[in-house]
Design a protein around this nucleic acid. Sequence first.
DNA 1: TTAATTCTTGACTATATTACTCAACTATTC
DNA 2: GAATAGTTGAGTAATATAGTCAAGAATTAA
Lengths: 187, 187
Amino acid sequence: MKISKKGEYGLRAMINLALAHELGHDCVSASDLATADNLPLKFLEQIFVALRQAGYVDTIRGKSGGYKLGKSANSITMGELVRLLDGPLAPIPCASKTAYEPCSCPDEDHCGLRMLMIDVRNAISNILDRYTLAQVVEVTLRKIRRNKAEHFFLRKEAPAPVRGPNHDPADPTQGFLAEWAASDDNA
Amino acid sequence: MKISKKGEYGLRAMINLALAHELGHDCVSASDLATADNLPLKFLEQIFVALRQAGYVDTIRGKSGGYKLGKSANSITMGELVRLLDGPLAPIPCASKTAYEPCSCPDEDHCGLRMLMIDVRNAISNILDRYTLAQVVEVTLRKIRRNKAEHFFLRKEAPAPVRGPNHDPADPTQGFLAEWAASDDNA
DNA sequence: TTAATTCTTGACTATATTACTCAACTATTC
DNA sequence: GAATAGTTGAGTAATATAGTCAAGAATTAA
Ligand code: FES
Ligand code: FES
């Protein structure tokens, strides 16, 4: 169920680009984005080719050029970006809504795996297609500010995060939905 | 978010093996399983090596030999099988509960992508770790019987399925959860 | 006992994808 | 017109995918 590096890097870059926009940096160079997020520069540029061709970013050439959002962050869903960079959401093509393809099963209508994977696809879609880039940025920024964390596009000094001994990497309370639900505005 | 062919084939084979068991075929040869489900035989055998080493199947050699379940189907969750055959459920390793690994993000605690992917992982886990092989087989078998469909391990004649023009390949009502919920026993 | 069936093991291969890097070019600004 | 920055396309090394092949070992039936 992994996402490719292309997808991961592209999503991280888009989130940071939108976050920088929110903080007043309308246009960010690829190298700034790469250093801000520890991304390989040349690979990132290649990823931006796909993002530009799909209209998600605009390009500004020449000195102090860079990339800027091609459409507003609240009109871009995370699902669109994942599909563009990483392909269909569904774990198997016969369970994909937007990119259905038959598989080698003799009877698709009575395939237990397909039934299960339809639900997995829809669970993934319920998250990724529901939330926009703007919402992800909003939540991220809120958490950064609350914890007074530092960020490349928000110069400030703050102590490095310390991780406790019982660190649960997939703790749902650390997830996006919990953070989103905790907001007054979206209750 | 794709699953590998190894994962797909392995899951299909395990479902069919458990389904065959349910229908009285305790032991099924690899070649029967392969022809029943259109799977490449030699590749399938290789997948069964992993399944056997993990104890999910037992092996019976010699004439009329084959594979049988190594533990009861209701003690095997789909999540276990996916993890064994395809690796962690989480789309990115920093969001994995069972196979956490840091990624190159400068600040994991304030990474919007990670927050989102934690929720995706948990959504996937909520399905795959909740349901067992036995439940998938039960639901599949129910659907097969209701539609009087034919199946390799259930010789019978039935008309081939006809698909309408407005076929939604990811229709949730065609999914596992809908079918599961429709049961009287599990209400 | 021998033949037939079936799994086991390991090696092997071909293709595709991933994750990049490099070099030459073009556009923009100071 | 030099410096900066994006654009394009080629190239590539490593890994994963999706298999195939052949020799061997266990079991059973004739
Ligand atoms: S896996 Fe696609 S129909 Fe069975
Ligand atoms: S993607 Fe892993 S912490 Fe940002």
